[in-house]
Computed example of a mutant assay.
Amino acid sequence: MKQIILWSLLILPWASLLFLKMNTVRRYMPVALFMTVIHTLAYQAAYHYGWWKETGSSLFGWDKVVPVPWVYGAYLVIVIWIFRFTFGKFWMYLTVNILLDGLFMYIVYPVWQRMGLVSSESTLSTIAIVAMMVGFAIIIYLYQLWQDEVFKQPKAKLINDQELT
């Protein structure tokens, strides 16, 4: 049963992208991948400094540090969906992130602990982890603002800039 849940966390979110326009996926995929890098680095730091351990969420045997189904499946796709509905409305974006991060850490994560999907070993308080997640959300929002600005440049200016290099 555990393997079915883990595979579902990896595959089903990706399938949900079929309900979005391809332009939307293209627009928000860079920020989702950026968040995946940040999340991967956070898990690496957590492993190194002993903040928490993710035992039980391994799908392949080699993914003991970073839970692949969550970071490269569900979380990556959730970022795209959240940006789809809230980008450009910062306070709504922030509110949604705080609510979802709190819901995950205070309700979903304890259920996953009881199911053996994640470990209960952590030296950080739950509120500290939620604060870290909200901090990451602010960083990626700023990144998406920058991305949108970069891709808004007129094509003539881009061509002229390329000719200079």
Rank of each mutant, 00 (worst) to 15 (best):
Q113I: 01
I82G: 02
L164T: 11
S8F: 09
S57R: 06
V79P: 08
L41H: 09
M132R: 10
S122F: 07
I11E: 10
H39D: 13
S122T: 09
W62V: 00
R84A: 10
G88L: 08
I38H: 07
K2T: 02
D148E: 11
K155V: 08
P67T: 13
G135P: 05
M92C: 08
W70R: 13
L18M: 10
I140D: 01
K155T: 12
F151Q: 11
A32Q: 08
P30A: 02
S125M: 09
V150W: 08
T86Y: 00
I138W: 14
N97A: 13
L33G: 04
G102N: 09
R27A: 00
Q44R: 06
M22R: 15
L100F: 06
W14S: 07
L9R: 03
A131N: 04
S120P: 00
A46L: 02
I139L: 11
Y75E: 13
I5M: 08
M115F: 10
W52Q: 06
S122L: 00
W62Y: 11
T165P: 00
S16L: 04
D63F: 07
A46F: 05
V31E: 11
W52R: 07
I98L: 15
W52K: 08
P69H: 07
M92H: 09
M1H: 11
L145M: 14
K21D: 11
K157F: 15
L158E: 11
Q44W: 13
W91H: 03
I159T: 10
R84E: 12
I82K: 14
M29E: 06
Y28P: 00
S16H: 04
L164I: 12
H39F: 10
S120G: 04
L12C: 01
M133S: 08
M29R: 12
D161T: 02
L9G: 06
W91N: 03
A128K: 09
L142A: 06
L158M: 10
K152A: 13
G50S: 07
V65K: 15
L10Q: 08
E149N: 14
Y109K: 15
G56T: 00
V108S: 03
